[in-house]
Amino acid sequence: MSRIETTFAQLKQDRRKALIPYITAGDPGLEITVPLMHAMVKAGADVIELGVPFSDPMADGPVIQKACERALAAGTGLRDVLAMVREFRRGDDATPVVLMGYLNPVECMGYERFAETCLEVGVDGVLLVDLPPEECDEIAPLFKERGVDLIFLVAPTTTDARIARIAKAASGYLYYVSVKGVTGSASLNVEEVAARVETIRNLAQLPIGVGFGIKDAQSAQAVSRVADGVVVGSALVNQVAEHADDPMAISRAVSGILADMRAAMDKH
């Protein structure tokens, strides 16, 4: 069983939901990322989504755009991100790590080489925002052969027919984007999300994580009642920006938010 499968199976058994933080790798500097990943696990993270910075993050709002700019200014490339995962694995062989980003840096490295390196360093899943299932026929087998999950987005605009198609291409979990918009935008509507998650469950067997618009313990708790996982990104990256010159403060602030979310989500 993959780390992602094991994690979701264990959570199900414990009747808990996955807390999935996102940070942009190399933001604001390369050396901060691995310690921050360990800190997030300590604060209650079950899966880590690690953002690969890109010069043109079309699906991201201003918070993650600026995070990409800081990470790129610090010189973070895809090879560096893969090296961070390798380093993280020295201290943590259980927590799944999903790389999240855009297609071009991966295409530039070469799909086969990227997939092989993912396997080698211990990346468990890959979510490429601008790679829909329609375009992945030639790419998907390279990941599948190596047991690296390809994770796909489902949106409020996704038709039932497409959900079924996405579910067929996907493994690991599905990421439901709770609002029409970019990351860090409007607040989500829990009832709408609940209805959509129900629809997705009828069409797909995979666990469902929900992201976009989760800002605090309260929204994390509400979403955890209807989904299998809660993804939080911009709210954490905001803290990174605020304390950019103080790594200890970043770690404290991010851990604080996650610990609050964890406590709220685990309350029955």
Partner: peptide
């Protein structure tokens, strides 16, 4: 039919725009 000119073109966007 899928918008390709040989290896070029296609539709590489996030899921929210696929329906549109």
């Amino acid at each position: 039919a899928r918008g390709h000119f040989g290896q070029f073109g296609g539709r590489f966007v996030s899921e929210t725009l696929m329906a549109a």
